[in-house]
């Protein structure tokens, strides 16, 4: 009985805290840290949040602070020092998980307070239109035949594209450590390498290659989402018998050591923002997929991803176990 009572009072207290927190949030002077230079994905996420929150008057003010560097680990290192700061959120995502391991960052994501997963982007593998490779099975067969001769172009070493190349090779029965992955700086350069037939295949977010896929200059041989993208006629890898599911997600975390009330306030604020029309409009405009997970679900998800990414990076030989 006492347990029930305790649960009741706890629930009541939590509700009270949320109510209080929500009214407090409208007075909040929020800082959103984008651990990247202006213009990138994290910066755009931060600025879209800022716009949505101020448009819906959910906060008194919101300010975006850029702390670029090293896949976000420079920003993270500063952020973990802001112990107990309940007025600051930081944007981060899949890429930071890998960057922490690669850069041997002294700080990591277990030190911050997860608040929510916000968006995700599906990854795609493409080949030039005149390539003999027609689908993911063909590519998997080529990998199995001679992994060295199958060259993948994509973004920076250890990033989402590289991890996906490793996972693809692993899933098609090749040795991940032998993947011939060629990192390019910037989407334009890798796209040129693919179109020019310099590499076998290219990996990137679906949005980046969408235009080329539609005009038929690139052939998409598979998307990394669990289900097909709405309105896009590209099969998933799963459909083609290749166990490869990966999305490039973006999320929000709060400072370490914040009180429960502070956490409740931030969670409530983000939840309200995500449900607002202003945010939905931002998603549509930027072409992002909503992938909202609340604090608890995201905490569990994040834990899982950290382990998974670590394993892939080890199998790629990029991180020594």
């Amino acid at each position: 009985m006492s347990v029930v009572k305790f649960a009741w009072s706890a629930a009541l207290a939590a509700t009270m805290a949320t109510v209080l927190a929500t009214s407090a949030a409208a007075q909040m002077e929020l800082r959103i840290i984008a651990p990247a230079a202006p213009g990138g994905g994290w910066d755009q996420t931060a600025r879209s949040l800022q716009q949505a929150m101020t448009a819906e008057k959910l906060v008194k003010s919101a300010q975006v602070v850029n702390i670029p560097g090293a896949g976000g680990t420079v920003g993270l290192a500063q952020f973990v020092n802001a112990k107990g700061d309940g007025n600051t959120l930081m944007v981060n995502g899949f890429v930071m998980v890998g960057a922490i391991l690669l850069n041997k960052s002294p700080v990591n994501l277990s030190q911050v307070t997860p608040i929510a997963r916000l968006t995700e982007e599906t990854q795609v593998i493409v080949v030039p239109a005149n390539s003999p490779i027609k689908d993911a099975k063909d590519l998997a067969a080529a990998v199995k035949k001679d992994v060295a001769r199958v060259t993948f172009a994509g973004g920076s070493a250890g990033g989402a594209d590289h991890i996906m190349a490793g996972m693809f090779v692993g899933a098609s029965g090749g040795e991940a450590a032998k993947v011939n992955y060629v990192p390019f700086s910037g989407g334009g350069e890798s796209l040129a390498a693919i179109l020019g037939g310099r590499v076998t295949a290219g990996i990137s977010g679906y949005g980046e290659y969408e235009g080329q896929i539609k005009t038929g200059r690139l052939r998409a041989i598979g998307v990394s989402s669990p289900n097909r993208l709405p309105g896009v006629d590209v099969p998933t890898f799963k459909e083609q018998g290749i166990e490869l599911v990966l999305t490039n997600w973006r999320s929000l975390v709060a400072a370490p050591g914040i009180s429960d009330a502070q956490k409740a306030a931030l969670t409530a604020l983000v939840e309200k923002t995500v449900k607002s029309n202003a945010w939905q409009e931002q998603l549509k405009q930027k072409g992002w997929d909503n992938a909202y997970l609340s604090a608890d679900a995201f905490t569990a998800f994040l834990k899982n991803e950290i382990v998974r990414v670590g394993d892939v990076l080890k199998s790629l030989g990029l991180v020594k176990s």
């Binding site: 755009q44 910037g186 040129a192 179109l195 080329q212 539609k214 405009q285």
Partner: peptide, 26 residues
């Protein structure tokens, strides 16, 4: 081609894309 080859071009591309436009032959 919709191929951004400098930082500024990448931002211009983002400028196109925020209107749902994809530069290229289309």
């Amino acid at each position: 081609l919709g191929l951004p080859t400098s930082a500024t071009a990448a931002m211009l591309l983002a400028g196109f894309q925020q209107y749902g436009l994809n530069p290229g032959p289309l």
